[in-house]
Amino acid sequence: MATAIKIEDLWVRYREEEDYAVKGLSLEIGEGEFVLLMGPSGCGKTTLCLTIMGIIPRVIKAEVKGSVRVFDLDPLNASPTEIAKYVTIVFQNPEMQLVTTSVYEEVAFPLENFGLPRDEIKRRVKEVLEVVGLSGLEDRSPASLSGGQKQALAIASVLALRPKIIILDEPTSQLDPQGTKRVTDLILKLRKEFETTILAVEHRIEWAVEYVDRILVMSGGKIVLEGDPKTVFSKEIKPEEAGFRPPQVSEIAYKLVRSGVALPTIPISLNEALNIFRGILDERAASS
């Protein structure tokens, strides 16, 4: 597995601010991984993402120390066009990223910018719209789409260029359960079909907990906890300290443990929890 993102001892300090927003952070993400970045607001998540994108320091002026590699590219010194071929970001509010007045034009736009031949564009647009599940809506205006569809369209429009890494900034925060499901399905499809590396910044965990490879928890500009969901949630996490809620089933499990129930593991998904509780009940039934 190749390394997609490699960060070594990164320090970032905004102009006119005394404290560093990111403090000596090191990180490695492999190609094709699905990683969730969590933490309270102001912990440096956004700063980290903007630095990976090279927006810091190119646009937002800041003092940056340390090294960032995205595959073989140094985003701190690369042009936006070069960066676009490797890594792309979809912000929380997709409205601002939709730059045309129809779904078809939106997906065709980047391909047109790179001067692709007409037939190739039509073929790729069709393909991408099928992947994200927006076929048949070609002539609709982005404004008329639902939140989940907008999010999917924003992803679709960058997808046409086949970026190797997609950063999702709170992709589900403004979505209803249906929209969230659409985004989750899309992420799984991307990984399967294009082996895209996905880094999602999130507050909510439930939607991704079963599929995510690794969770990174940031606090005060550093990564304080790291591992697969099972490991991360095996010890009790207090939402008020961490800045995000663990899965509800895990919270129930923490309570049970505190009240003296011995659990073999802390469950992170509903199915797992059901199995564990069923096991315990069966045991009790057998012993009594």
């Binding site: 676009a84 912000f91 601002m96 730059v99 047109e112 790179f114």
Partner: peptide, 26 residues
């Protein structure tokens, strides 16, 4: 704040990457 996001989005979509661009519906 959106101006920043929009600018980044345009970059991600390769806006201005080439001197000339095609139009898929000519």
């Amino acid at each position: 704040k959106s101006a920043l996001e929009l600018g980044v989005a345009l970059d991600s979509k390769g806006f201005g990457a080439m001197k000339t661009r095609t139009f898929s519906k000519e």
